[in-house]
Amino acid sequence: MAKLCAIEYYLPERIETNDDLAREFPEWRMDKIGKKTGIYQRHCAAADECASDLAVYAAEKLFLSGVCKPEEVDYVLFCTQTPDYILPTTACLIQHRLGLRKSAGALDFNLGCSGYIYGLSLAKGLIESGQCRNVLLLTADTYTKLIKPDDRSVRCLFGDGGAASWITADGQGLEIGSFVFGTDGSGADNLIAHGGGFRRSTDFTQSCELSMNGPEIFKFALDTVPRCVRDLLDQEGVAQDSIDLFVPHQANAYMLEYLCAKMGIEPDRFLVNMHNCGNTVSASIPIALRQSGRFIGSSRSIPEKIIPIGFGVGYSWAACFLS
């Protein structure tokens, strides 16, 4: 049985507060924006700092905590949409930097806000099919590098961050249960960075700016998340009331509070925790869970049944059952 045993995360040093944005955009009511988004500051990677750096720092924290050692890693999965290079695979660079065994497997996968759940799924598959025992799942992104400086409505949402999760066949942790997946590529244009790929042009000097259609993404989330959770509950044969904690991707507080009300879940069972780091894409679920103090290693009572839900760019979504 694959178990999620530990999570560590790293946020870059530089912080951009809403006051910083208010100075840059004096006509914008930043006090209101913070109240609505639930985001008061974001961490931004330095010019020479990549998603892989954030992932490596998070993994080093995991090793320092004593929960696992680099030589125990059988497989490293790296989820990012901001890799170091087109090639080679960033996970290969990470294997070397972390001093992982040369007999370890390593691969990147490209997903955004749903990526953490897909990573748990891949890790479970690797472990339960007997291919390996210990998986290091790294999820990190530096979306702030994709945002146009004058795009204030996106700048106030996204922050950079990286998380490292330790998933093993043995040990104390949350057992990874069943999954529900979903994909709808018809929504691709609503959250997209055109540059850096081969569809539009092979001129890599072209813009790599993030373009987001907020209302479309919001509608997608309203339609998709409640259905995804319902399908998972049906599949597991458990009642919504028996779930101790729902951990949605931390998109923005307004959206999450609305989803929570729409699904009829009490706010204390629906984790909203992004005030200090914004939307950190595929790192948002493990960061929120770790920061909340409601995970292994915390002094607070640990929830027994958790449902994390990822949704966003793609469109792609997934949820799973942890117990």
């Binding site: 609505k36 409505s153 259609n213 209302p215 479309e216 339609d223 307004y254 959206m255 729409k262």
Partner: peptide
């Protein structure tokens, strides 16, 4: 004065809640 990208999203949410009406984001924008 207060109408911005966040209020557009709020409008979608509130209409969904009060009227159970899924408004086309394209038409709304």
């Amino acid at each position: 004065e207060g109408w911005d990208s966040m209020t557009v999203v709020a409008f979608l949410a509130v209409m969904d809640k009060h009227l159970s009406l899924a408004i086309s984001p394209k038409e709304l924008v």
